[in-house]
Design a protein around this nucleic acid. Structure first.
Lengths: 326, 326
DNA sequence: CTAGGTGCAAATAATTTGCAGAGGC
DNA sequence: GCCTCTGCAAATTATTTGCACCTAG
């Protein structure tokens, strides 16, 4: 939850309003806090520094922050609102402990997808969704402190992004290795071998980056998952790799690869774009680019293959012509 | 949302409190309404009949209803609570229109499962979860009335239960038909054929019931989905049926069948148990029983097969012995 | 000088509570 | 008669607003 480096407030949408020491003071105190503050919590905090500040100003500043996109108003059903900063904080869901009233954040690409589906089925245009799981947290159940406190979300997010990227890379490596093995055409085999080599190299890079991340926070690995995504379990290429059996020819293998790379590229791009500037975002976007390159390579190769076959055989069937189009 | 037949209030947890005309009046008006009422809405409604009723009494009665389990307090982030009756109403999620402030209900077994997973991963004991999708509803976007109003949830729920049951039955029929085709042993083939016949018969029953349901509400089929469940799309046996290829022997086929029936039985039982008495609940529970019988039959057959093989061959391998245990 | 920021106190809005009277058992 | 329900008015809680004053640009 903590913000590793405070945002530059001067750069942060100063539109509409003149500089005011009070407002800046409130914003600074707010951003320095972690967790979900109620207006009252914030008033108390501010009054430690300066007890000549009015409740109304705090409310007004909170509203200003929400409008400026610095803060988000969240409702935990307590009969009052709480505020969380949105700077570097992606939209997320909450686990809310009814005993200690603390709340924990998580993100689930899977739940998001289902929510999207439900909305579509009902012809509903969703603008925002709330997922709140009420219950009892581990601490309140067992009485003991959980091993991992509120780690820096930034790092945890980067960790989860890297884990997904690594799983995808591993399944990609498996995929291209298999593809190279069953390839019939020398040229096709070369492509798959090259891609396998590239995946291997990239995998090493990602793993190094992961190790480097762990060094920055020794407990990082034991912190709970923040970003849930089922596709990560076996990697996004796992299904494709499974389909690569002896009977598959080069063209089919290319098509399966294209489908996997496309899915992967889309996932990483979509997620990368959603976040504020952060290490995790960077991981997502870099990976998306990587996948994009592979995708382009495969598509080029596929087209070349089809063209060669067109010269040899009669002509390519309409269906594969369609499939080769982006 | 409408209650087809009003519950018998006298039977409804009258514990703790004497009969009071005012309370009964309020409860009756509340239960007659559909949708999500705010305390104020209810006060207005009550005052149409009797304007000598105090706001405080309405609040007290609402609280009483929540305690008695007749009503649920829901928070749509408006800064005040709304109330919905829980009689015959399973816990559900909401789509909330920010324009017209209406809300629509849905249930998603899939989202529930993911929520459960997240909670488990975080060692969190969930007691309740809130899923709210905010946005714009179809009416507010297009301006025209949606074809289907607020249908009786009871009927829609029964419809969805039947749809899932039918899809499962269809995939079950497909599964047993295939299994009978590839069975090597005459006895195994007989079992699969019998089950296929049974599925066919049961399928006809379910379809008749579905048709009967449609007659009760001619628009029923066009009402939006209430219960979302991915497994329904192809039926719970679809995956199993796919695995039934030539290479599969009778023992393996039985195992796959057992796995499918078990999954199916569990799903229907779990869902059936969650709801208040209703047609949908009945559909779920009856189906669960049916699957349970099939499951038992398959398990018996599997054991018999293993025993026979044990006499013929050396001895059964440990792994299959384990698999045959419930 | 002037628009916007700030404090204070009063206003709202939803909901709860204290208390005295009313009514069922 | 007792115990609970009920109405009324006052209290509480979270938040907003009116208004006069203040301050940076």
């Amino acid at each position: 939850m903590a913000i590793s480096s405070l945002p530059d407030l001067r750069a942060l949408k100063p539109e509409g309003g003149k500089r005011s020491s009070k407002r800046e003071q409130i914003v600074n105190v707010f951003l320095r806090q972690e967790g979900h503050l109620s207006a009252d919590d914030l008033v108390d905090l501010i009054r430690r520094d300066d007890h000549r500040i009015s409740r109304a100003t705090v409310y007004r500043t909170l509203q200003w922050m929400v409008d400026a996109g610095i803060a988000r108003k969240v409702d935990f059903g307590e009969g009052r609102f709480r505020f969380e900063h949105s700077y570097r904080q992606p939209r997320h869901f909450h686990l809310i402990c009814k005993t200690c009233h603390r709340s924990y954040e998580f993100l689930s690409s899977d739940i998001e997808a289902l929510v999207e589906e439900v909305a579509t089925a009902r012809n509903f245009s969703p603008s925002q969704s709330v997922v709140q799981i009420y219950g009892t947290c581990e601490e309140c159940k067992t009485g003991k402190q959980p091993a991992t406190g509120d780690g820096h979300t930034d790092l945890v997010f980067a960790r989860d992004a890297l884990r997904i990227a690594i799983a995808t890379e591993r399944s990609g490596l498996e995929f291209y290795t298999r593809a190279a093995k069953i390839a019939r055409d020398a040229r096709g085999r070369k492509i798959f071998q090259d891609l396998a080599a590239e995946e291997k190299e990239h995998l090493a890079t990602l793993e190094a980056r992961y190790a480097e991340l762990l060094q920055r926070d020794p407990q990082l690995e034991s912190r709970p998952t923040f970003l849930f995504f089922k596709g990560a379990a076996n990697g996004l290429f796992a299904e494709g790799a499974e389909r690569l059996t002896k009977g598959v020819n080069d063209q089919q293998a290319l098509l399966i690869g294209i489908r996997c790379e496309r899915g992967s590229h889309r996932f990483f791009k979509k997620y990368g774009e959603r976040f504020e500037d952060s290490e995790g975002k960077q991981v997502f976007l870099e990976f998306a680019d990587e996948e994009r390159e592979h995708l382009d390579l495969l598509v080029r190769e596929y087209r070349a293959l089809v063209a060669r076959q067109g010269r040899t055989k009669r002509k390519r069937p309409a269906s594969t012509a369609r499939a080769s189009a982006r």
